[in-house]
């Protein structure tokens, strides 16, 4: 998005630059939410599928009933104790079970007062759970063999996803979604940004399909072939060798709810043009989701090892 540099804009930027908490972000003119997880979860909560009119949780889609409650984590590890976060002691941690294909999801629910450019920024990191003598899968996993520097833990991390659930006043519902695929389903390092080409299946679509659902279904887009790579360029992030070192990464993602399109994704020193990334819409119009503006982050393990996505802080801003 082009920014203007009128005096008021220069003054706004100077104020942001002078604020140690905000100056690590690049917000659009209006800040909707500024979530430092050192001060609580700020409305990020577990996603769950829908239940029936009796409050019977057995009616929740079987692949959407165990996305795990997010945790306020001090980033504690067995080797060094408390690592701590970037802005304080605590980060938001989304964790999977140690079950291949399991997904953890945290969601934040808002609505749109207007349509326009929306930006999600966060400082994040991702880790696999440290091994014990009992839980270890050995010194080699996927492509990675421990050599003193490289650590098999890195190949035990599957993917993390940043995503939205959007529905405007016209009843058109769609998702902007980007996923960092660290490994493929064979645990080989791919380190690609991918996106889905189908909309997420809804509870209504799955209402009479429960017998065909797996608890570890990829709920965002179940068929692996429906995930397309943004390009063939891997992005190397700072896993930092072992599962107990936490290095925070900057992520900035923009999309436009006026045009229902992606704009761009920045992750540290790489800026990706997303304007050609399709945003699938549902065929039918929706009622009851007017101006829905949901953000979710998810983490998906491709190994029988717990995977974690940590957010130090997040900032949601708009051009309204």
């Amino acid at each position: 998005m082009e920014t203007t540099h009128a005096p008021a804009e220069d003054f706004r930027r100077a104020l942001i630059a002078a604020d140690p908490r905000l100056s690590k972000f690049n917000p659009l003119p209006r800040i909707l939410a500024f979530d430092e997880f050192n001060t609580g979860t700020h409305g990020w909560t577990e996603l769950i599928g829908n239940h029936d009119g009796y409050g019977n949780l057995d009616t929740v889609d079987k692949h959407m009933r165990d996305f795990r409650p997010p945790q306020l984590s001090a980033c504690d590890f067995f080797d060094i104790g408390t690592h701590g976060a970037m802005s304080g002691t605590y980060a938001l941690k989304v964790a999977t079970r140690p079950v291949t294909g399991h997904t953890g999801v945290a969601i934040r629910r808002l609505t749109m007062a207007q349509r326009g450019v929306i930006q999600f920024e966060t400082y994040f990191t991702y880790k696999s759970e440290a091994a014990t003598a009992e839980s270890s899968l050995g010194n080699t996993f996927g492509d990675v063999a421990w050599d003193g520097n490289l650590h098999p833990s890195e190949a035990q991390f599957g993917a993390f996803t940043i995503a939205t659930d959007l529905c405007d006043g016209d009843g058109i519902r769609y998702h902007c979604v980007m996923r960092y695929q660290n490994t493929d389903l064979d645990n080989k390092l791919t380190r690609r940004w991918v996106y889905p080409v189908v909309p997420e299946p809804t509870p209504k679509e799955n209402l009479h399909n429960q017998d065909n659902l797996s608890p570890v279904e990829d709920f965002t887009a179940p068929n692996p072939e429906d995930w397309q790579p943004l390009d063939q360029e891997p992005q190397y992030l700072c896993y930092n060798e072992v599962p107990t070192k936490v290095n925070w990464h900057y992520l900035r993602w923009q999309f436009d709810t006026r045009t229902r399109t992606n704009i761009e994704l920045q992750v540290n020193d790489r800026v990706m043009d997303l304007r050609d990334v399709p945003v699938p819409q549902y065929a039918d119009k929706y009622e009851g989701l007017e101006n829905l503006l949901n953000f979710y982050v998810s983490v998906r393990t491709h190994s029988p090892v717990r995977n974690f996505l940590f957010l130090d802080s997040a900032l949601i801003s708009v051009d309204w």
Binding site: R68, P69, L72, Y90
Partner: peptide, 8 residues
């Protein structure tokens, strides 16, 4: 149950 962090 799954491990849950409660340091805070």
């Amino acid at each position: 149950t799954e491990p849950y962090e409660v340091a805070w």
